[in-house]
Design a protein around this nucleic acid. Structure first.
Length: 576
RNA sequence: GCGCCAGUAGCUCAGCUGGAUAGAGCAACGGCCUUCUAAGCCGUAGGUCCAAGGUUCGAAUCCUUGCUGGCGUACCA
């Protein structure tokens, strides 16, 4: 069914009139693309063969045989060509919607489908000792938003930041530090910059002379074996990074329930290897230990290197077990770039082969990558745009715009931060997550059209009307019975109401598909229709009754926009 | 080579499990601020939905093949 508003009574009436069964109606009925055609439509093509009649004739006959008394809330049902179109009574529709928003407030659009179920979300998960680049934005904001959306639907969300705080990269960094540590500043304001320089220099040399990589592996092995010097450096690098990440998460408003990174699973690797051995899945190959997945069309999973050090896949297996044991999850989600599709296929397949029934509840939620116009981002080559620089630029630009457009704003710095950061977050959540995008300063710093600032602006604008009204002693109607329907009897109000009505359904879909862009699109749709309404009709007019009814609509718009923005992890300032 | 993903207006994208005339934004051009925030609104222009087959009453949507681009393809994560 297209949405929840299709109730049984309507299905029943249509079913009887057409002489078909309930399932047929439920699976065929749809919401017309053009809502002028009706609120629901039932195409009758499929019945043509069976009934040996033209679809249009079937629709016509069915509409003639409808009962006198239509279901509550239905204004009329009419045949239009081969379609049987259902029109809801606009008044009762508007009444139900506004009443629901009035009653539910910022819970409008929420549900309880997930109640009692736990969802584990692994997102953001940046690598320690590397800068937090725009590339890390994706996992962070998508994961955060999906957590908000699922939470809104009653799921209990466990947000895990699976830091990349283990692996050969640390060995490499240690080698670099030992060699050139005195050339960089790791104590000043920007120690990450120093680490990056070491990292880049190392990779430049390693490209020409692979023996550098061997030294890196050696040092990582030392770390795994608990070497004191290695451990000291590792702890120090980690501290430097965590400080930086903390600052960014605070700005983004992102929080986690667990910060157990890869190192956390260090002592849980043995058990994984044990399990694999018990099931006879492990084989020796070229000196390493692997699980062969050839018969499933997958490349082998490397479990243990020839020098016995563990790998990414091993740690993910250990983490999956840990999460299962600790949280008894309904779903275990990984918000990781689509480049790692194969990796997750392998890991989940191994879990399946291990006989774990919960393997099917593990899901990779992939997203496209961010690249530069001239190619890929690469930390190894030092080709990174720091997320903080992007946020700073955005905030700076917003601040300038405020100084031009609303110089009287008193909490300007705070609002500039909210709008600037919100613009970046919203930007990343506008398109479907699977899409790749190219980093472009001009584009990401555009605040007009389908952008975060536009949505925030629309919200602020409508909040402003409510404030102005209050100053004049006007409040929205508080009970639905007071509504003056004439005040909403125009195209702009109707399509605005429609946009508001679709909001809960979009949230539901966004939760099912782990796709925040559906919320973004719905927010933009509401903002668009709201601004059109704003420009076509005055809210604060002489007739008090009309004003108060329109204020109710304004209240509904502000409520929904704020809820939508909040689910996306974007602030909704009162003024801007 | 093989695998996964994408291909819709000049650019960036929507288009829900196939349904009525394929929609927005940006860029371009022309309008609208002495009443609620012009980060807004209205209008003009812009399309062989990558291509060819197939399924269907009906395909941007499903299937097949091909083309283009991105990513992956064992000791990085």
């Amino acid at each position: 069914m297209p949405n929840e508003s299709v109730n049984d009574t309507i299905v029943d009436v249509l079913r009887t009139a057409l002489g078909v069964d309930k399932d047929w109606v439920e699976s065929t009925i749809e919401v017309p693309g053009d809502r002028k055609m009706g609120d629901l439509a039932l195409p009758c093509f499929k019945l043509a063969k069976e009934k040996r009649k033209a679809p249009a004739q079937i629709a016509k006959e069915a509409s003639d045989s409808l009962p006198q008394e239509l279901p509550k809330g239905v204004d009329r049902i009419e045949a239009v060509g081969p379609y049987l179109n259902v029109f809801f009574d606009p008044k009762s529709q508007a009444r139900d919607l506004l009443e629901s928003i009035l009653e539910n407030g910022d819970r409008f659009g929420s549900s309880a489908v997930g109640s009692g179920k736990k969802v584990v979300l692994d997102f953001s998960s940046p690598n320690i000792a590397k800068p937090f680049g725009v590339g890390h934005l994706r996992s962070t904001v998508i994961g955060h938003s999906v957590a908000n959306i699922l939470n809104f639907q009653g799921y209990e969300c466990i947000r895990i930041n699976h830091f990349g705080d283990w692996g050969t990269q640390f060995g490499k960094l240690m080698v670099a530090y030992i060699e050139w540590g005195d050339e960089v500043d790791l104590e000043g304001n920007d120690p990450i910059q120093g680490l990056l320089q070491l990292y880049v220099k190392f990779h430049k040399l390693a490209e020409e002379d692979p023996s550098w990589d061997d030294r890196g592996r050696e040092w990582f092995k030392k770390l795994e074996d608990g070497d004191e010097e290695a451990l000291r450096l590792w702890t120090w690098f980690k501290e430097i990074s965590l400080k930086e990440f903390d600052r960014i998460y605070t700005r983004l408003g992102v929080e986690f329930d667990s910060y157990s990174g890869e190192a956390f699973y260090n002592d849980k690797m043995v058990r994984v290897i044990q399990r694999l051995e018990e099931k006879n899945l492990l084989e020796e190959s070229r000196g390493a230990k692997i699980v062969d997945l050839e018969e499933y069309g997958l490349t082998p999973v490397l479990i243990q290197r020839s020098d016995d050090a563990t790998l990414y896949a091993t740690r993910d297996l250990a983490a999956a077990y840990y999460r299962h044991d600790t949280y008894e999850f309904h779903k275990n989600l990984y918000f990781v770039a689509s480049a790692q599709n194969d990796h997750f296929k392998q890991v989940f397949k191994v879990l399946e082969l291990l006989g774990e029934p919960w393997a099917k509840d593990c899901e990779h939620v992939p997203f496209g990558l961010i690249s530069f116009a001239d190619g890929m981002m690469s930390t190894r080559r030092g080709k990174v745009v720091f997320l903080e620089d992007v946020l700073d630029q955005a905030v700076e630009r917003v601040d300038k715009i405020i100084s031009e457009k609303n110089p009287a704003l008193n909490n300007r710095a705070e609002v500039a931060e909210q709008v600037g950061v919100g613009a970046i977050v919203f930007y990343d959540l506008t398109r479907r997550r699977i899409k790749d995008w190219t980093f472009d300063w001009d584009r990401i710093l555009t605040f007009e059209g389908e952008t975060g600032p536009y949505a925030m602006y629309s919200h602020a604008r409508f909040r402003s009307i409510l404030r102005k009204a209050k100053q004049r002693g006007l409040e929205p109607h508080t009970t639905i019975d007071e509504i003056q329907f004439d005040a909403l009897d125009n195209d702009e109000a109707k399509s605005l109401l429609q946009a508001l009505e679709e909001f809960p359904d979009q949230i539901r879909r966004a939760g099912e598909q782990y796709e925040p862009s559906l919320v973004t699109q719905s927010v933009l749709e509401v903002a668009d229709k709201a601004n059109k309404f704003y420009n076509a009709h005055h809210v604060l007019v002489d007739e008090e009754d009309i004003s108060r009814t329109r204020l109710l609509l304004v209240h509904a718009v502000a409520t929904v926009l704020k809820t939508g923005l909040t689910l996306l992890g974007v602030a909704a300032p009162e003024e801007m």
